[in-house]
Design a protein around this nucleic acid. Structure first.
Lengths: 211, 211
DNA sequence: CATCCAACATACAGCCTGTATGTTGGATGC
DNA sequence: GCATCCAACATACAGGCTGTATGTTGGATG
């Protein structure tokens, strides 16, 4: 995607990238704390120390900036999960797909605790971007990982064969809602435990059964 | 809540209720089709054949109207599910709690297919109202029914004892997401079948197991 | 029948988005 | 090395939309 610029053009290109990144970072902070509608474009550009002209030069409109913000948030989340996944695979090569699945889901649940991710990706995202854009973003960055793990578990025979695509999204929604429930609970430690238990029990329904 | 007016005051009170209902109905249609942000207050009042003055007389602001719209949508949904539930209980008094649970969840899945419900309650609601208001609405109208069925199933011993509150919300999210997946699928019949299967299998994880 | 007030209608002010129009600094060709 | 150009911004403006403040009216009330 990123084409190598001629050496002369580097300085300018980097400066431009900086500006864009500053806008996305400012948008991420403000959208996450105040929400999309309550955040004015002037708030964003003043936080990024540019003007509204820069914003509308880099993005087609406010929603387009939000799209970039959500994409970054989703990408970061996927990156974190992949790192945890590979680290676990290295540390415990003996784990089978079923164990990996269960542990991975608990990791996902914990990672979703991030308030910025919750607000931007889970709450505002669907309303601001609409389902087609939101779906494409989550497909790219989020579901691929989940679907991969599920497919592997099916191939190993640790869970029964089901349609991977709907199952992926249903389980992702399950974990997402669980993370929101935990975040809003008075006793978060207890909520974490209870949702974790429920998640494990629900996953057990997918376990391969004797015919 | 509703105090009996003196007989003379009826006409006026009914007219007021009509106006309010017209606003809620117009809001429901427009919010569901165009979304909250894209719907102007002028669109709503012209559709309801009143002026913006009436809107701001009955509701504190635009979000307050949306709250009334969502409340009506959630109440209708709950009402439909309760009716189905009682009808099933009368037609098949032999069903145990486990069967009732499974059939009820499939009914819930089908009921969630309503595009207006999806847009207003599931997509826009959380972003527009914030979690505390949204949660209180869903608690009142939606979760009570689910929690009731789950509790009964646990008491009958057909599913294992788990924390009802988090489980209720996780399962509701599961079904909600499934309904959205179906609505957005190209092959909806196939999506309905696949999600229905997955839902059944997931529920199976809650089934009581031999120690 | 005079009075009052709830239930609206109208008018206005402020904000906020998007666009149209400048401006500037670095890259580029010669 | 310098004129030129254009991308990367900054500024200015127009339109719309929300919320509020201020009128108005028809029915209830004593």
């Amino acid at each position: 995607m990123e084409r190598a610029e001629p050496t002369r053009g580097r300085r300018k290109a980097e400066h431009m990238a900086d500006t864009r990144e500053a806008l996305v970072a400012a948008g991420a902070t403000l959208f996450a704390s105040r929400g999309y509608a309550a955040t004015g474009t002037e708030d964003i550009v003043s936080s990024a120390r540019v003007t509204r002209g820069a914003l509308y030069h880099h993005f087609s409109d406010k929603a387009d900036l939000f799209r970039a913000v959500m994409e970054r948030s989703a990408r970061d989340m996927a990156q974190r999960l992949i790192e945890q996944e590979t680290a676990r695979a290295e540390a415990h090569p003996e784990y089978d797909a079923w164990t990996t699945l269960r542990l991975g889901f608990q990791s996902f649940l914990d990672a979703c605790a991030d308030p910025s991710f919750q607000r931007i990706v889970l709450i505002e995202g669907p309303a601001v971007l609409g389902h087609s854009i939101w779906d494409s973003l989550v497909d790219q960055h989020g579901y691929v990982l989940l679907a991969e793990v599920l497919t592997k578990a099916m191939q190993e025979g640790s869970i029964d064969a089901l349609a991977v695509q709907p199952l992926t999204r249903m389980l992702a929604a399950l974990i997402s809602e669980a993370s929101l429930y935990i975040a809003r609970a008075q006793d978060q430690a207890r909520a974490r435990e209870e949702t974790g238990d429920a998640l494990d029990r629900i996953l057990a329904g997918l376990e391969r059964r004797p015919a």
